[in-house]
Design a protein around this nucleic acid. Structure first.
Lengths: 135, 135
DNA sequence: CTCCGTGCAAATAGTTTGCAACCAA
DNA sequence: TTGGTTGCAAACTATTTGCACGGAG
């Protein structure tokens, strides 16, 4: 019994059609349940390797949809040119190796913010990113 | 008595010539002792406004020099296209308003990291960035 | 005098967008 | 049928680089 995987169900719930590029990209990203840090180029290469070419433009558009739906997150703070997308959507942060470019997850509980941070009035915290740089 | 400003002295100490683009850019950045978040374009515009046009390429090259010398820092974590340079080199972090794009400094003491973070072996922490996103 | 540094334009890199053909529902 | 999607290429933005001229030391 092959039931619809949760990430594909999310697409359906959002009213998005279940098209071939979307399912293929989703398979590469979530297929084995393993969290990944990927770039658009990496996805394109992975698909090409499997004989399933998808236009880079479409990959970017699809990633943006996935971002909106919360299926992936962007990682900031690295000095690599391309945007890195993280398939781990649980609260967590990153260690960035400036020498190798290697990006490693760290648990959110290893980081704490003082509770007396002055926010601009009327604003609420929507999240925070921590990047620990090592070399 | 007009003694050499510290940031210009830093250039000299590093063996860099005190050229007109460098002093002009330094003046715009540090002239009034006020910390700034700027982009290369902002600097170009500010210089043009003062009738001192400097080529964008030269501004980028100069900013890279300033980065190496620790006169400015890059700010990561925002979703604005251009790289933001921060003239505040003291340890601190940022609040990023996703609605307005406004970037605000917060003191480093308002942030604390757990001391049990597992680093890759042989690596040392060279710094860390915290960006609190608000809306 | 000697190079380092500059201006400018061309080259790159990453990402977005316009549009005709397509296809999931 | 029909409007959301795709592919492709062109457009764009941000940044880097190559090269001949120019100015600081």
């Amino acid at each position: 019994m092959t039931s619809t995987p949760p990430h594909l169900q999310t697409l359906l719930d959002a009213g998005l059609r279940l098209t071939s590029p979307r399912t293929e990209i989703a398979r590469v990203l979530f297929g084995d349940g393993q969290a990944r840090h990927v770039t658009a180029d990496w996805i394109a290469a992975a698909l090409d390797k499997g004989g399933k070419h998808i236009a880079l433009g479409t990959i970017y558009n699809t990633l943006r949809h996935f971002l909106d739906l919360g299926l992936v997150r962007e990682v900031h703070g690295t000095r690599t040119g391309a945007t890195i997308f993280d398939t781990n959507t649980h609260p967590h942060h990153h260690i960035y190796d400036e020498t190798t470019g290697q990006l490693t997850d760290i648990s959110a509980v290893d980081v704490s913010l003082a509770d007396q941070i002055d926010l601009p009035e009327g604003k609420t915290v929507s999240g925070y990113d921590v990047v620990i740089r090592v070399r």
